[in-house]
Design a protein around this nucleic acid. Structure first.
Lengths: 334, 334
DNA sequence: TTGTAGGCGTTATCAG
DNA sequence: CTGATAACGCCTACAA
């Protein structure tokens, strides 16, 4: 692998000059530039970005930490971030946190130690305080899909509470009054906020929250099945079900059907996120649109603007969810 | 950010000694080690992996190039690679190629320039020759989900031809004789191999391939719709449909149903990949199991074994697909 | 077991 | 506009 030194030799100029034509900032005469370019081509020269990064303490890469690499949710998020950044000539370095505090911290350390120009975080286990502390370090951080009060400028988030509210209200408006809820893990900020929205909607319709119609699961399909199994065992009537995300809604629906319920006649269910398969499941899932891809793009734009001083026009920091009505909910009938 | 130098000062030892305790290779007396460790803790020292990498020309990270960041297929693949590598203490650097030659090459360059210890590639646009050339470079490459004759040792692949064959044969065995095919882009190796399998199965049953029952689309859902629209316009009877992947199968099924066909009575369809949503779509999709996650893990193990000399027992280089029968296919009736 | 010094491939600050 | 030369933070012979 050719180095800058060999290029300088071949072109009969100094190292500095080669560096200059690479970075195109300082002025170089056209003749010299030509010579250098030619030499680079001839040697098949590729700059070593590690060395560049060490010398300049910049990386031209930005770090991205997500909880998981699989799953529709994170896929869309990563894709959003990447496509925006890529078209600005930046590369991303992805790593995972698995929603475990220790791993999240380790992932962050890794990204920082790689000299990323900035890092975009989707973290769930780490505390607000930790993030605030982190933001004082030399690597700028940006937070996606989570709102941290004291770091508002760095956050791209969804109004999850509103989402939970909308989901629940959609059922109330269809005449349902006994509405169960399978929420996500309550240590997760979004899961909790969605659940708050559920309660607010109930309150607004003067329905008192019934602990027996509530279950907290793990955001996975199996969690949805467990959830509804638990709820059905309570011997409490319910005709509506609000789920913390689409995966759990799917699990719950499958289980309910196996138990002989027909959907949506016997049970109206609404999901959350509108991941890609929401429209594949049967009946097609009524759910809350969570614009993760958009949010990913926006996080990228925020980085571009704040770190690389590009002129991004439209920065929207908090996104509003909306209801997507499909076929898994219907008017109550009795 | 503290450097190794400050640590050495505080601990009153030389740079070299600090370096030694970090890497734990050379021998250091317990007393000195203690001092150094203490100093590191006190300064909150974190090694700068960029500098480490430059000095040692190793990265302790391995590069991963995939076509896309979203979608069930790549998600599973990345997750497989990552989990295996992470538990061995290695980090991955992910980037994308978007199935475009230029971008794939750029992504590869990026990973190499980042001093990755090895790179795992899922590339579709780049030629075998290019890969062979690349493999002569100093960064070891591994190829996933593609078989390159001269690089067999570095490949983890699926027998796509067999998959296409199994899919088609499953329909033939159900009595179907007029079987259409919506294949993936024929410049993609896997798409082509699957199509070959389709033809082999037909031949085996003495059915001559009918060009009018073939359509090549883009592996996306919309491609599936286009495909079946095209096929139905041919005025050619067919009762079976083999699709290049599950997404296209889904698109085709939706379109067919909109056109009044009832599934699987009027049309049996089989997909390919068994991505997560295959069992969500209606009727549940009969498809070919593509163990991407396993293959990802295996690629990681291969790297671990060949690059880091760990003792991986079970290396399987070519995977066999298998048929998963669900509800989208049935005996022909007329 | 420990220290010294040269080098990894660039960038950046000076002079010239 | 161009060329030395000192960083960047760490690794690694080679010596001691």
């Amino acid at each position: 692998m050719a180095t800058i030194y060999q290029v300088s030799e071949l072109a009969k100029v100094s190292l500095a000059t080669v560096s200059r034509v690479m970075n195109g900032n300082a002025k170089v005469s056209d003749k010299t530039r030509e010579k250098v370019l030619l030499a680079m081509k001839e040697l098949g020269y590729r700059p070593n970005s590690i060395a560049q990064s060490l010398a300049s303490s910049r990386g031209n890469s930005i770090g991205l930490l997500v909880s998981e690499l699989h799953g529709a949710f994170f896929g869309e998020m990563m894709a959003g971030v990447e496509s925006e950044l890529r078209s600005a000539g930046k590369h991303i370095i992805v790593t995972t946190g698995h929603s475990i505090e220790e791993k999240e911290k380790e992932g962050i350390e890794f990204l920082i130690s790689r000299n990323c120009d900035a890092i975009i975080l989707h973290v769930e286990a780490v505390s607000d305080e930790y993030l605030e502390e982190l933001s004082k370090g030399k690597t700028p951080i940006f937070i996606i899909s989570r709102y941290v009060e004291n770091l508002a400028e760095q956050c791209i988030s969804l109004d999850n509470e509103l989402g939970g509210y909308l989901a629940t209200k959609s059922l109330l408006d269809l005449g349902h009054t006994d509405i169960a809820c399978i929420a996500g893990p309550q240590y997760k900020f979004d899961a909790k906020a969605r659940f708050e929205g559920y309660k607010r909607a109930l309150a607004e319709y003067n329905i008192t929250f019934n602990e027996e119609l509530f279950y907290s699961a793990d955001f996975k399909e199996t969690g949805g099945s467990e959830g509804i199994a638990h709820l059905m065992a309570q011997q409490q009537e319910f005709t509506g079900l609000v789920c913390g995300n689409d995966e759990m809604a799917s699990g719950a629906m499958n289980f309910a059907r196996e138990r002989g319920l027909s959907l949506p006649e016997d049970l109206s269910v609404v999901g959350f996120d509108d991941v890609i398969f929401a429209r594949y499941i049967h009946p097609k899932l009524t759910t809350i649109l969570n614009p993760v891809n958009e949010m990913g793009r926006m996080a990228a734009k925020l980085v571009l603007k704040q770190i690389y001083q590009t002129k991004e026009q439209t920065i929207q920091q908090v996104f509003k969810p909306s209801l997507i009505v499909r076929e898994s909910t219907q008017l109550i009938h009795r």
